[in-house]
Simulated scan of single mutants.
Amino acid sequence: MAGPTTIHHARSNTFGIWDISFISLYSPFLIIPFECFRKQKPITQVSIIIIATLLLGILVELGQSAFSRTPDTGDIFRNLIGAGVAICFLLPVRKKFPAKSMRLFKLTFVILIGLQIWPIVVALIDEQHARNEFPVLSDFQSAMQLDRWECGCAISIEKDIGCQGNRAMRADLDTQHYSGFTLKYFPRNWNGYQWFQFVIYNPSEEVIRITCRIHDKLHTQGPQLYADRFNKTQSIPVGWHTIAIPLDDVRKAPAGRKMDLSQIYAVGFFATQLPHPRTIYIDDVRLMK
């Protein structure tokens, strides 16, 4: 059996690394010592760097659509951090500014860089935990696990509510046509396992119908038809319930093909057209042999 060597479209190596690159990209570029630039007063040099950073950042963001990427104003902020690093640590005339002020600016930009890097550090730690914990996909014993999920509703990790008296994820479903949450970051190779299992809790006496959907990477590359993925709706009465889905059913679910269990892309849970908001809990999402 092939082991789970990768986390599907991992948080740390997609937008996170891309975002941090904006900090390093501008630092060396904006301090090129053109002769006309070096003759300017220190405050003028700083102003030129900041204005050039803003203008270049805005132009880059306006051109994002040409590369199938959504413009992000946060990139402009990261550009300015890069410019600040250049000014505080690399710009030759920085020594002409008051020492106390420069130390304060250096500390400020170090903190700002740390705040930008921290989410990537957290993602890397959780990705390693996910590899170590596999075939458990999410048991919510760590607050970091919440970032493995994308939500179309409010989600949180609650203590002393899980199926074994520990933690579980709470989802507050609303009355939109589809309201739910999706597991997006996990080891994607499910070959060698026979069951996909999760535990769900309905705290209400009123039955709720929850649909579980599973699809592979190939599904995302087409029109994403309902018949091209696995869908199963369950009526959940009050209390805790363990739901086990045969992976052979998942494999055979797409019409006209077999789902690739080595390339599972996402697992979703949702309710459809609820008449009023409902709360459910989910725990111990895992694969079983």
Rank of each mutant, 00 (worst) to 15 (best):
R103L: 08
R103C: 02
L104Y: 08
L104M: 13
L104I: 14
T108V: 11
F109C: 02
I113W: 00
Q116F: 01
I117N: 02
W118Y: 14
W118R: 07
A123C: 03
D126W: 08
Q128C: 02
Q128R: 14
H129I: 05
A130D: 08
N132V: 01
N132D: 15
E133P: 00
P135Q: 10
S138T: 10
D139S: 14
Q141P: 00
S142T: 08
S142L: 12
A143C: 00
A143F: 01
A143P: 00
M144V: 00
L146R: 15
D147E: 12
C151A: 15
C153A: 13
C153R: 09
C153G: 07
C153H: 07
A154F: 13
A154T: 15
I155P: 03
S156Y: 06
S156Q: 14
S156T: 14
I157V: 15
I157L: 12
G162L: 02
G162C: 03
G162S: 03
G162Y: 03
Q164R: 12
R170Y: 07
A171K: 08
D172G: 01
L173E: 08
D174S: 12
D174Y: 09
H177T: 13
H177V: 09
Y178P: 00
Y178V: 06
F181K: 03
T182V: 13
Y185C: 04
Y185D: 03
R188A: 10
R188E: 11
N189W: 02
N189M: 02
N191F: 07
N191I: 14
N191W: 02
N191M: 13
G192P: 11
Y193R: 06
Q194N: 15
W195D: 12
W195T: 11
V199M: 03
I200P: 04
I200T: 07
I200H: 05
S204L: 05
S204R: 08
E205S: 12
E206P: 02
E206W: 01
V207Y: 01
V207I: 13
I210N: 05
I210E: 04
R213I: 07
I214Y: 06
I214G: 06
H219Q: 05
H219P: 01
Q221Y: 03
Q221S: 06
G222Q: 13
P223A: 13
Q224W: 02
Y226G: 01
Y226C: 01
A227S: 13
R229Q: 14
F230I: 03
F230R: 03
K232I: 09
K232L: 11
T233V: 02
Q234C: 04
Q234D: 09
I236Q: 07
G239T: 06
W240H: 12
H241E: 11
H241V: 02
I243Q: 13
A244Y: 01
I245L: 07
I245E: 03
I245Q: 05
